[in-house]
Write a protein that binds this DNA or RNA. Structure first.
Lengths: 355, 355
DNA sequence: CTGAAAGCGCTTACAG
DNA sequence: CTGAAAGCGCTTACAG
């Protein structure tokens, strides 16, 4: 297959010929294996440079018997939210694309509401041979513990969905949360202009552990400040995530503040707010929240939710695995952070959205 | 490389062993080449079924000496608009990923304002060996002529950016235009609510040939109708695309209709409207248009443009080439239409947008 | 520290 | 209609 014109030969064979060594020695140099004299090594390196040698990945994978073990550690899909289904789909798509190249993916799940399940899964993971890890570092302390162990074992790890900065991860793939909240504020303000109050709601059992909700809130507030918007911001933290708790709290809030024009929910649980508004026949409040969940889409279709912000959770999973693959198998550099686009979903474009 | 557990062997070798033939014969059957008795053929086919044989793509491409020639035919990047830079980038990205597998991409460009340049390029293309074509069928008549020739030569073709339905293309990759315009209307109405008129503008030298602008307009109008919105719709076709012509027409329109609240431009030339609004210090008109061009982004940053709708032009190019690759090289089925998401870009999220 | 040889799973002339 | 053999560009024991 003469795809490159010019040079007759350009693979390991040609390098070996020019260096007057065997291809085995060339291979050792290419993979930086020991057992080559410095002199031959440098000579070969020079020739590689000169030839601008690009290894043939096809041949490499075909010949290699090396098997890679990747591990994922993400929240289980719960009855409460199907959010993590999307990243898992992405992971499985990546898996199907690369499994023929000798990659095995071991899947571990933890309970978002239970740190101990996270810890016990991390223990299990380290019992086996692992070449790379894709994880959602939801619990900070516990994640730090785990990645310390990974560092000792020289196992690279990729974060998705939320980041722990400066922890030497191979990369972070997910949203930039501040701007995400900032956009939420823009949409809220755009909806009600400068009249009326806006309500920001965090709904989670783990609000205090989940730094990422807070970061969105900061972005949300920053928008109003930066743009000198006069809307008053009301805030509510809801730690009981069942519908009744959410509803009664909302009821109280809306009674106290009769002039709330828009509500921003910092995560995918916006559907419970939507449910409340619909049941209460409240139509004059604009609602903005997160994520392409079936429930949320239904409320989008009914005009109860105006905008959903979504950050391609499926692609996060896909790219997470691919980052490991690129780095460990193809030996390609991957960029330290890959921020997902901040997508706006409405009733008019959700049909064409791709997670 | 024992990646599959279970069966000891599973490739052509094992098939050959079971069928009691040589691997060459197996290869003939796999590729549906002639020269195999029906009996042996059916026998081999049955074994392939039974084994659920999946060819090893790596080995196939490595061994094959076949070179594929893909051709692209898209508008040239002009001083008027850099729109086609993005699809070209996507094409080049795909090229860099697959060129090592024996794919060559020949690039042809035509002048969007000159049908004859389109025709003359199509003539050139057919002079060489071509395995697949990626094209923007901007001029319908001329495109039909060309694809008829392709059909005769059994050359598959992919459409991007705009479609000519039921023309037996391998696939269409691009926007669904009606909903794109529909979303534009929603954003316009959302911006001004039910007060004021909306202005829809087509700016193109080739309005009459460009069915896709019309389709967006239909979607735009449909939104107001479907939702019983009372905003009056004013329409303008601008066939002279230079700034002065656009400006004088706008000046006239805005004088006649003092109560226009929002303007929707059906293509990337929204920047010239933005330029006019800025120069005229008109601040009370919301502006919505298309595409992530540098000029447009500048007006987005200045709050002159409120929303840009964008449909991942780069990805269109990338996926267009990949569709050919998947179908012709990997022999995988590709779906007939791939509608791009209808993305909404604002000042708050443009930084994270990926074309 | 280095090399000869076999092999990865296919495809491709060539011979019969 | 069918098969034996070489080869794609690498990697991997194994031997020295």
């Amino acid at each position: 297959m003469k795809k490159d014109d010019g040079l007759e030969l350009s693979g390991v064979k040609e390098i070996a010929r020019r260096a007057n060594v065997s291809i085995a020695t060339v291979d050792r140099v290419i993979h930086n294996r020991s057992g080559v004299s410095n002199k031959t090594k440098n000579n070969i390196l020079a020739i590689i440079q000169e030839l601008d040698y690009q290894p043939n990945i096809l041949a490499r994978r075909l010949a290699s018997k090396k098997l890679f073990h990747f591990v994922i550690l993400i929240p289980a899909i719960s009855e409460e939210t199907e959010f993590w289904k999307a990243p898992l789909n992405g992971i499985e798509q990546a898996e199907s694309e690369i499994k023929q190249y000798g990659i095995k993916i071991e899947k571990y799940f933890f309970d978002q509401n239970d740190k101990r399940s996270f810890v016990s899964q991390t223990k299990k993971i380290l019992k086996n041979k692992v070449d790379g890890i894709l994880m959602a570092p939801s619990f900070i302390e516990e994640s730090l513990e785990f990645i310390k162990a990974c560092q000792d074992l020289k196992i690279p790890y990729v974060f998705i969905n939320s980041d722990i900065p400066s922890q030497d991860s191979l990369c972070y793939i997910g949203p930039e949360l501040f701007h995400s909240g900032y956009l939420g504020a823009r949409l809220a303000n755009f909806a009600i202009k400068d009249h009326g109050k806006v309500l920001i709601i965090n709904i989670s059992k783990e609000i205090d552990n989940y730094h990422h909700l807070l970061r969105k809130e900061e972005g949300f507030r920053a928008y109003f400040q930066d743009n000198n918007k006069k809307n008053e911001i009301i805030k509510a933290d809801i730690r009981q995530t069942d519908y009744n708790s959410v509803a009664s709290l909302l009821d109280e809030l809306l009674t106290t503040h009769s002039d709330i024009g828009a509500v921003f929910v910092t995560n995918s649980r916006v559907f419970s707010v939507a449910q409340f508004l619909e049941k209460s026949s409240i139509k004059n409040i604009r609602l903005i929240g997160y994520d392409f969940l079936q429930e949320n889409i239904e409320y989008l279709k009914n005009d109860v939710i105006d905008f959903l912000i979504c950050q391609k959770p499926q692609e996060q999973g896909y790219r997470g695995i691919m980052a490991l693959y690129q780095n460990l198998v193809l030996d390609v550099a991957v960029s330290k952070t890959y921020f997902m686009p901040i997508d706006i979903i409405t009733k008019e474009n959700y049909l064409f959205y791709r997670n």
